[in-house]
Amino acid sequence: MDIGLLNVRITISKNVVTTDAIGNHKNEWVPFYTCYATVSGEAGKEETDAGTIVDDSKIDFTIRWCKKAAALDSTHYRVEFGGELYDIKAVDHMNYKRKCIKLSCQKVRR
């Protein structure tokens, strides 16, 4: 893995359930891990959904392997990059060689 290609900073957030002062439970995204990544596979696509144009961009991030990154899954984590949020659709451990992890993501609809 060429370290020089890890040129963008991303933040991975985790979805946790928090309880407020009166006992209400709510989902909240908290920062989990910040690292440098390689961005690849950018594919922009716009669709019309219910009369509005929706951006369904797909992007891949490749990060270095570490114990924290090895715990990532597609249901409890998301990526923040360039002020945009991306849902993790798939986590590829690259043949489990413990060198890098590839995150296939799609832009969050808001």
Rank of each mutant, 00 (worst) to 15 (best):
R9W: 08
R9A: 08
R9N: 10
R9H: 08
I10D: 02
I10Q: 01
I10C: 04
I10M: 06
I10W: 01
T11E: 12
T11R: 07
T11Q: 12
T11N: 11
I12H: 01
I12C: 01
I12L: 02
S13E: 15
S13H: 14
K14V: 07
K14P: 00
K14Q: 10
K14M: 09
N15V: 03
N15P: 00
N15L: 13
N15S: 14
V16Q: 13
V16L: 10
V17E: 12
V17I: 15
V17D: 12
V17A: 07
V17L: 15
T18R: 12
T18K: 15
T19W: 08
T19G: 00
T19L: 11
T19E: 13
T19V: 11
T19M: 09
D20A: 05
D20E: 02
A21S: 15
I22G: 02
I22P: 00
G23Y: 04
G23A: 05
G23K: 06
G23T: 01
G23L: 05
G23M: 05
N24R: 10
H25G: 00
H25A: 14
H25S: 11
K26V: 01
K26S: 12
N27Q: 14
N27H: 13
N27A: 09
N27S: 08
N27M: 06
E28T: 06
E28R: 10
E28L: 10
E28A: 08
W29S: 11
W29H: 04
W29Y: 12
V30E: 14
V30M: 08
V30K: 14
P31A: 11
P31T: 03
F32S: 02
F32N: 05
F32E: 03
Y33E: 05
Y33R: 08
T34L: 04
T34Q: 11
T34C: 03
C35T: 15
C35G: 05
C35K: 04
Y36M: 08
Y36L: 09
Y36E: 03
Y36F: 11
A37E: 07
T38D: 09
T38A: 07
V39M: 13
V39C: 05
V39N: 00
S40L: 04
S40V: 02
S40M: 09
S40Y: 04
G41E: 02
G41A: 03
G41F: 03
E42H: 11
E42K: 15
E42R: 11
A43M: 10
A43R: 12
A43W: 04
K45R: 15
E47W: 11
T48N: 13
T48E: 15
T48K: 09
T48P: 00
T48M: 09
D49P: 00
A50F: 09
G51W: 12
G51M: 10
G51Y: 11
G51L: 09
G51D: 07
T52N: 12
T52Y: 09
T52H: 14
T52K: 12
I53L: 13
